[in-house]
């Protein structure tokens, strides 16, 4: 169990997919203008990430090495399409907001990268920890990023049609925060904060991480 938790925590902190590995950034910068949209994007990624990694891990002995990539893609694309159709049917407003970024989860290198580096070589139990941890690490960062951008840029947070908090009415936010350059700026500060946090954690004793026999490299 401690092994499971160690793998799970890694996705959240030391190997956070967004602020440390820096993969899957494209969708993150694009949809982090609204907390509502970012939250559902995060949930979609957690689901696709966990479900596809566990399935790939379960069938890893029956998938010959040479055709593993096509099989991964089919598995991931199927889960993404399921999310896409379900969101379209039940959350039409959020589906419209996320637009093309839902189908684009298929090519998010975070998911394919974890399938290749971790899920294909480890048992489903550990893989579920990795999928959930990485997915949650992604979701938390994208929601925090969206919170800062929506609050600073538009002066209020609107969630499912209700206004949660708002700046005083005289407040006029810097519009650039809502645009792509603003996304990079805010993201840069987040990376700095996260690096500082990870440094502090690393100063304490870190136990070796199970399941990591391979050097998993940096961004793919």
């Amino acid at each position: 169990m401690s092994e499971w938790i160690a793998v799970f925590k890694r996705g959240l902190l030391i190997d956070n997919p967004l602020t440390v590995l820096m993969i899957g950034l494209c969708a993150t910068l694009a949809v982090s203008t609204k907390v509502e949209g970012a939250l559902f994007m995060g949930l979609a990624v957690i689901f696709v990430m966990t479900a596809s990694s566990v399935l790939i891990s379960t069938m890893r002995r029956f998938v010959p090495e040479l055709v593993r990539i096509p099989v991964f893609i089919v598995v991931i694309a199927s889960f993404v399409t399921i999310v896409d159709l379900t969101m379209h049917a039940f959350l039409p407003d959020i589906y419209t907001f996320l637009g093309v970024w839902i189908p684009l989860i298929v090519v998010n290198c975070l998911i394919l990268g974890r399938a290749e580096a971790f899920a294909y070589h480890n048992p489903p139990r550990l893989v579920s920890a990795d999928g959930l941890g990485m997915g949650l690490g992604f979701a938390v960062v994208i929601v925090v990023l969206a919170f800062i951008r929506e609050f600073v840029g538009s002066g209020e947070i609107v969630f499912m049609g209700t206004r949660l908090i708002a700046m005083p009415s005289w407040y006029r936010g810097p519009g650039v925060v809502m645009l792509f350059p603003g996304a990079f700026l805010v993201f840069g500060f987040l990376v700095a904060a996260m690096t500082a946090l990870n440094r502090r954690l690393a100063a304490r004793k870190v136990e070796p991480i199970p399941g990591c026999t391979l050097d998993e490299g940096g961004p793919s």
Binding site: M59, R60, R61, F62, V63, P64, E65, L66, V67, P70, V71, V74, V75, A77, S78, T81, I82
Partner: peptide, 25 residues
């Protein structure tokens, strides 16, 4: 102990995956 990459097994693996995926979708 993973299955070897022989042509027959590769075709089979991809076919089965696609069939299951198509059904689910």
């Amino acid at each position: 102990d993973r299955v070897a990459s022989t042509p027959a097994k590769m075709v089979l693996a991809v076919l089965v995956t696609c069939a299951v995926s198509a059904t689910a979708l």
